[in-house]
């Protein structure tokens, strides 16, 4: 399950950047030679909303208005790993994956039907058969019922690995997430 640098890391829906920081920190400490050239690609709107302010997790956000971009704040906090993080700001349904194989994918953005469909059609094809790990946030969240249909359709190629019981219920599917050549057929790099 360890990262060996065979692909990049996709962090879909990083919000304030906690997951990106953890992933980038781990990547920077990874001693596998091939991993030194890999980066964490963090996708989010990076826009202040009511929830961002109410949580009061980032002091700088309290100084911003609803609708303001907090991307500069995100990048500031990613400073220790600035060479390992690339931010992609905007509506994910209008964005494309950069094209690298994806070795690790953290998904916390399947908040509606369209986002869910886009993640499956745009990002999942780049997973590496027998190698990639998917961290599926919100899998067991009761608001996101649409999350269950795609995994069921792809169950032949997903191997459940475990759950985390802190924070949101979380589901891991991993090694091998896609068996055979299925991901390559879908356009994996």
């Amino acid at each position: 399950m360890g990262i060996i640098g065979e692909g990049s890391i996709a962090d879909l829906g990083t919000w304030l950047g906690g997951s990106t920081a953890a992933l980038a920190a781990g990547l920077s400490e990874n001693s596998t030679p091939a991993s030194t050239k890999r980066r964490v690609h963090a996708y989010d709107l990076f826009l202040v909303d009511d929830f961002s302010k109410e949580q009061k997790l980032i002091p700088e956000i309290q100084q911003l208005n609803i609708g303001d971009s907090f991307l500069p704040t995100f990048l500031k906090y990613m400073g220790p790993w600035k060479d390992r993080v690339e931010a992609h700001q905007g509506d994910l349904t209008q964005q494309n994956w950069v094209g690298d194989p994806i070795e690790l994918m953290h998904v916390d953005i399947m908040k509606n039907w369209d986002l869910t469909n886009h993640v499956w059609s745009e990002f999942y094809p780049s997973l590496i058969p027998g190698r990639s790990t998917i961290i599926h946030q919100d899998f067991a969240h009761y608001w996101t019922g649409w999350n269950h249909i795609h995994p069921y359709r792809m169950r032949e190629f997903l191997e459940p690995c475990g759950t985390l019981l802190t924070h949101h219920p979380t589901y891991f599917a991993c090694d091998p997430p896609f068996r055979g050549n299925t991901a390559a057929e879908g356009g994996a790099g």
Binding site: W113, N117, W120, A140, I149, R153, G186
Partner: peptide
Amino acid sequence: METLQRKVGPDDIDTAEVAAAFEWSR
């Protein structure tokens, strides 16, 4: 892969599939 491109949505719901999906997840 065709399955990855097949969208899910309110206009394309197979109730039997939905039931099976939730049972699988559970």
